[in-house]
């Protein structure tokens, strides 16, 4: 296995995630796209950790922290989406028009 093949895969997932963030209007779907981007980051870190034979397991540790933080973010995000849904009965970002962009 070469390191480059993992990097190309992760670049693909990251770019697909960016496409999703730009195209989706629904907050839950935007969040799913961000999860794809984070999955790409994890692949990078674990592959580089193996490549450098990192003695302190730095690459894997960073991936574990990213997973934990992602869990917290999803919890926060869904709480906010739920709150908005209660008040507005919609989870679409574009329909949030009280504050203009």
């Amino acid at each position: 296995m070469t390191i480059a093949q993992f990097l190309v895969l992760s670049a693909a997932l990251f770019s697909i995630g960016i496409y999703g963030v730009l195209v989706r209007r629904n907050a839950v779907l935007v969040l799913l796209s961000v999860e794809l981007m984070l999955a790409a980051v994890n692949i990078n870190f674990v592959a580089f950790g193996r490549y450098f034979a990192d003695a302190t397991a730095g690459g894997q540790m960073f991936a574990l922290f990213i997973i934990t933080v992602a869990a917290a973010e999803v919890g926060i995000g869904l709480a906010i989406v739920l709150l908005i849904f209660r008040n507005r009965a919609s989870a679409n970002i574009d329909e949030l028009d009280v504050l203009k962009w």
């Binding site: 390191i3 990097l7 990251f14 995630g17 963030v21 907050a27 935007v30 969040l31 961000v34 981007m37 984070l38 790409a40 980051v41 990078n44 870190f45 580089f48 490549y51 730095g58 690459g59 960073f62 990213i66 933080v69 973010e73 926060i76 995000g77 906010i80 989406v81 709150l83 908005i84 970002i93 949030l96 504050l99």
Partner: peptide, 24 residues
Amino acid sequence: ALKFFVIGVLSAAILVYGMSLVYG
């Protein structure tokens, strides 16, 4: 909150991707 959150998680994802390249 929603706008801040979406931008916040997006920027965090971009930030850590950059960090992964720096680490690499």
